[in-house]
């Protein structure tokens, strides 16, 4: 927050923490922190991909932005939208209008409602729905269908149609491509590209790093519930020397099209995290300093959470 940005961020998440209250045994309550001091910004006109392992908390980030976390979740930190605090009241008033959500599962569609009605929602107009369907190559016959009659790819396009019904400025897409074949996935990403080029900001959550390479402007690497590095796609494509965090570098080495070489060890549990740097137990550069709190810092036009990064 110290630096002045040339452009105001559309979405500005600062030091977000999310924890869940869980009952361990009987009435023993335990607080489990699943997102740890996470910061990121999405600017207008860009696609920021959030990539990382399943179970690392990516969907929780999306749900926190939308304000749809379950009741036992607690959040700390700040989420700002266009410079103003995005609290529950504001979330409720602008989500579905200025902020659109494309959920992970096609099961978010209402199984008992024809898709044209669901896409129109409570405010939408018929013409807009028709325009959206035409844009995503959904034929006239699809309008009267129920979700079970749609193929996986059609259902995805219906979900995307709902997101463009209102003039959304920010689109939060949670794993929008699984189940689509390569062409369809590319087409979906192309749709996001168009929306971004029209000035939207897109937060694209995916575990498919290859897709992120093809679609995004910047990639945020998620590890164990926090972001360890944010860098331009060009840096990722240039290879590990251009990256900053040892985990991102290991990521590049492990790709089947590169060395396919893994590092040892596992991502730690939310309930059993190491002190300081979450990656330290697996890190070749580990030292005493790594046990301190590590803050995100800027290096070479990217951001990294590592004391050793250069």
């Amino acid at each position: 927050m110290e630096e002045k940005q040339e452009k105001m961020a559309l979405l500005d998440v600062q030091k977000l923490r999310v924890s869940f209250d869980m009952y361990e045994r009987g009435l023993q309550k335990k607080e489990l922190e699943v997102l740890h001091e996470l910061s990121l910004r999405v600017y207008p006109g860009e696609i920021l991909a959030v990539a990382g392992a399943s179970g690392s908390g990516k969907s929780i980030l999306a749900h926190a932005v939308m304000g749809i976390l379950p009741g036992n979740a607690r959040t700390e930190g700040e989420i700002r939208y266009r410079g103003e605090l995005l609290d529950r009241k504001r979330q409720e008033s602008i989500r579905g209008k200025e902020i659109a959500f494309i959920p992970q599962s096609v099961e978010y569609l209402d199984p008992l409602m024809r898709v044209d009605r669901q896409v129109m929602g409570i405010r939408g107009a018929k013409e807009k729905q028709e325009t959206a369907f035409a844009r995503y190559h959904l034929g006239k016959e699809v309008e009267r269908m129920y979700p079970f009659q749609l193929s996986g790819g059609m259902a995805r396009r219906v979900l995307i149609s709902t997101a463009v019904m209102e003039e959304a400025r920010l689109i939060v897409a949670d794993e929008p491509t699984p189940g689509l074949n390569a062409e369809m996935a590319m087409e979906t990403l192309q749709n996001f590209r168009e929306l971004a080029d029209e000035g939207c900001g897109v937060l694209l959550i995916t575990h498919d790093i290859d897709l992120a390479f093809q679609a995004a402007d910047r990639i945020a690497v998620f590890y164990a519930g926090t972001i360890v590095e944010i860098a331009s796609v060009a840096d990722f494509l240039a290879g590990k020397e251009a990256l900053r965090h040892p985990y991102s570098k290991a990521f590049i080495d492990a790709l089947p099209q590169n060395d396919f070489k893994p590092i040892e060890g596992f991502q730690p549990y939310a309930g059993n995290l190491p002190k300081g740097c979450l990656f330290a137990p697996r890190c070749p550069m580990r030292s005493g300093e790594c046990e301190k709190e590590i803050a995100m810092r800027k290096i070479r036009d990217g951001e990294v959470r590592c004391v050793h990064a250069t």
Binding site: S54, A254, P256, K261
Partner: peptide, 10 residues
């Protein structure tokens, strides 16, 4: 498919 690339390679 559901794993990160490092676990995949492992």
């Amino acid at each position: 498919t559901m794993l990160d690339v490092i676990t995949q390679a492992q």
